[in-house]
Nucleic acid binder design. Structure first.
Lengths: 144, 144
DNA sequence: TGAAAATTCGTAATGATTACGATATAATCA
DNA sequence: TGATTATATCGTAATCATTACGAATTTTCA
């Protein structure tokens, strides 16, 4: 994830009138560096080193704010919400992910299935779609 | 959902050595009749009329057993697990769903995006995929 | 610097899911 | 049918992610 993406995220934050706090800065940097899906728990684990008293209230509030302003994208895996740096900040166009269930690493899928069958859903109002492939990535396959 | 599907589910149950209890029967019938995604809570709401003391332990244990033996399929929506009668019991081939976020109704999507890009994931071991479209169905659009 | 608004902390509440010992039930077979 | 055994269920408590909220703190900007 490029430094430019971090800049763009911070810019978004300020544009929308959010305050630029040290916790938010650290969270953005963490996600930019990790470049994979993280749980709220992982976020707090990483950041409690710097901020021993970091509250879950702060973490969740900021995670959801970030999703709102398109800095993060969200998914759900076995009952847990997970977040990753939004690919769109990196200038990438809409796409989907292969997600490694061991380490959270993602690969881009260069195709959106929605293009193929909107006509199958006449009469319904489409709100969103979810397309994800789960498995084990090369690295984790080597290790196990 | 056809009566034949219920028969097939019961057959599966017995084949795999599970006991055929009145709670399991009721759960299977409920899902066959509902023909849409239900939460554990909805299951207990419907069945507590017949079994006032039905335990969540029983509900979850059976839901997961049913998924295991392919009687139900599972998804997750805003932090809640949801289950529906497996389409494969109805003799349908692999497909995906449009899911109404208001009532849980589903429509089949006649196309599996997995066919298109397995080659994009050389080196990874694919375990599963999730492809779902969320929105509001015709009926719920009328009501709102 | 000072005031206003937003943010964070500390902690408790919520709600879905899981766990477990005691009891009940279904399946099997003599 | 009755006894036996493994499985299922009940009742209830524990767990865990997420949410909530009043008090204290921090950022922003004039």
């Amino acid at each position: 994830m490029t430094g430019a993406s971090v800049e763009k995220a911070i810019q978004l934050l300020k544009e929308k009138g959010y305050k630029y706090t040290d916790k938010r800065q650290s969270m953005i940097e963490l996600f930019a560096q990790a470049d994979r899906y993280l749980t709220a728990k992982e976020v707090q684990k990483y950041l409690k080193q710097t901020y021993p008293s970091l509250s879950y209230d702060t973490i969740y509030r900021n995670l959801y704010s970030f999703v709102e302003m398109n800095i993060l994208e969200e998914t759900e895996l076995s009952g847990e919400k997970m977040f990753r740096f939004s690919c769109s900040l990196d200038g990438q166009h809409h796409h989907h992910h292969f997600i490694c269930t061991k380490c959270g690493m993602t690969k881009n899928i260069h195709m959106c299935p929605m293009d193929f069958f909107k006509e199958q859903l006449d009469g319904c109002e489409i709100q969103s779609h979810r397309f994800e492939i789960f498995g084990t990535c090369e690295n984790c396959l080597k290790v196990s």
